[in-house]
Simulated scan of single mutants.
Amino acid sequence: MAGNMSKGIMSNCITDFQALKEFNIVSHAGPAPKIQEVIWSFPPNGWIKANTDGAARGSPGYASAGGIFRDSSGGIKGCFSLYLGIQSSLFAEAIAAMHAIEIAHQNHWHNFWLECDSKLVVDAFNNHHIIPWKLRNRWYNCIYFCSLMNFRISHIFREGNCCADKLANFSLTSREDHWWDKVLLAPGH
C-alpha cells in the first residue's frame, strides 16, 4: 500500500520493475538518461588545436599534465607529458593549458584553439582568480600570448579528450617529462 502512495522514483531496472509488478505496486519510472554525443572536431584550415588534460591521484596527490597538438587534417604536430610532483587537480589542469599556450607561442602558431575537459580552466579565462596564486604570473603571461594570436578556448567532455588523458597519465607512471614530435602507430592502425 505504501508503495502505491509513494512519489519516489525507482531506478529504470527491469528486475525492479518486475518485482514491483508482482506486488501490484504502481511504479514511477525515472526520466530516461540524457545521451549526448561527444565527438572531437578538427580545427579549421590554418589552425592548430591542442587538447590538454591534467591528472592527479588525490588532491593533492601525484599529478601530471598532457597535451596533443593537431592540424586541420588531424595530423599530429607534437605531444607532451609532464610530471608535476604533489599538486592539486586544478594545478595540473592549469599547467596543461598554460604549457600548450606557451608551445603555441614558441612555434608561432597564430591561429590556436585550446580544448580541455576542465570547465574550471575554461572559466578561468574570464575569471583569473580561479587560478592558484602560485601560477598567476605564468597565467598572466599566457593570457598575453593569447592576445597576440587568434585564440579560441572550448570545453570538451572527457570522453572526447582521451588522447590528452592518456598523455597526462603517462607521466604519472613514468614520473618524467616527455615531448614527442611524431607518433608512430602500431601496424594495422
Rank of each mutant, 00 (worst) to 15 (best):
residue 93 E to Q: 11
residue 74 G to F: 14
residue 71 D to T: 03
residue 24 N to W: 00
residue 23 F to T: 11
residue 74 G to L: 06
residue 48 I to R: 03
residue 24 N to F: 01
residue 54 G to A: 05
residue 20 L to K: 12
residue 18 Q to M: 05
residue 92 A to E: 00
residue 32 A to V: 09
residue 1 M to A: 15
residue 32 A to K: 13
residue 31 P to N: 00
residue 44 P to I: 00
residue 44 P to A: 02
residue 81 S to G: 03
residue 72 S to A: 04
residue 62 Y to K: 15
residue 92 A to R: 12
residue 40 W to C: 04
residue 65 A to W: 06
residue 22 E to D: 15
residue 98 M to F: 07
residue 27 S to W: 10
residue 29 A to E: 12
residue 65 A to K: 05
residue 59 S to H: 00
residue 79 C to N: 03
residue 87 Q to F: 07
residue 2 A to L: 13
residue 99 H to K: 14
residue 26 V to N: 14
residue 10 M to Y: 11
residue 47 W to H: 05
residue 47 W to G: 05
residue 24 N to A: 09
residue 17 F to L: 07
residue 98 M to P: 10
residue 56 A to K: 09
residue 66 G to T: 01
residue 25 I to N: 03
residue 90 L to I: 05
residue 3 G to K: 04
residue 52 T to I: 02
residue 11 S to W: 11
residue 64 S to D: 10
residue 10 M to F: 14
residue 6 S to L: 04
residue 79 C to Q: 04
residue 48 I to C: 08
residue 100 A to L: 05
residue 38 V to G: 05
residue 43 P to A: 09
residue 32 A to H: 13
residue 11 S to A: 07
residue 22 E to P: 08
residue 66 G to M: 02
residue 86 I to T: 15
residue 3 G to Y: 11
residue 37 E to K: 02
residue 50 A to K: 02
residue 49 K to I: 04
residue 6 S to P: 05
residue 66 G to F: 02
residue 54 G to M: 01
residue 61 G to S: 07
residue 30 G to K: 10
residue 65 A to Y: 08
residue 76 I to A: 07
residue 100 A to G: 06
residue 81 S to D: 01
residue 72 S to K: 09
residue 101 I to C: 11
residue 92 A to I: 10
residue 93 E to D: 04
residue 29 A to M: 14
residue 73 S to Y: 04
residue 91 F to G: 03
residue 72 S to F: 14
residue 31 P to S: 01
residue 95 I to K: 06
residue 32 A to I: 08
residue 98 M to K: 11
residue 97 A to D: 08
residue 88 S to V: 06
residue 94 A to K: 00
residue 35 I to F: 05
residue 46 G to C: 03
residue 43 P to S: 11
residue 97 A to L: 12
residue 87 Q to S: 14
residue 44 P to V: 03
residue 28 H to V: 07
residue 50 A to T: 09
residue 102 E to W: 12
residue 102 E to T: 08
residue 5 M to D: 14
residue 23 F to K: 05
residue 76 I to C: 14
residue 94 A to V: 01
residue 21 K to R: 15
residue 3 G to C: 06
residue 29 A to R: 12
residue 48 I to K: 05
residue 30 G to T: 13
residue 98 M to Q: 11
residue 11 S to T: 05
residue 71 D to V: 04
residue 86 I to H: 09
residue 58 G to N: 00
residue 82 L to S: 03
residue 65 A to T: 04
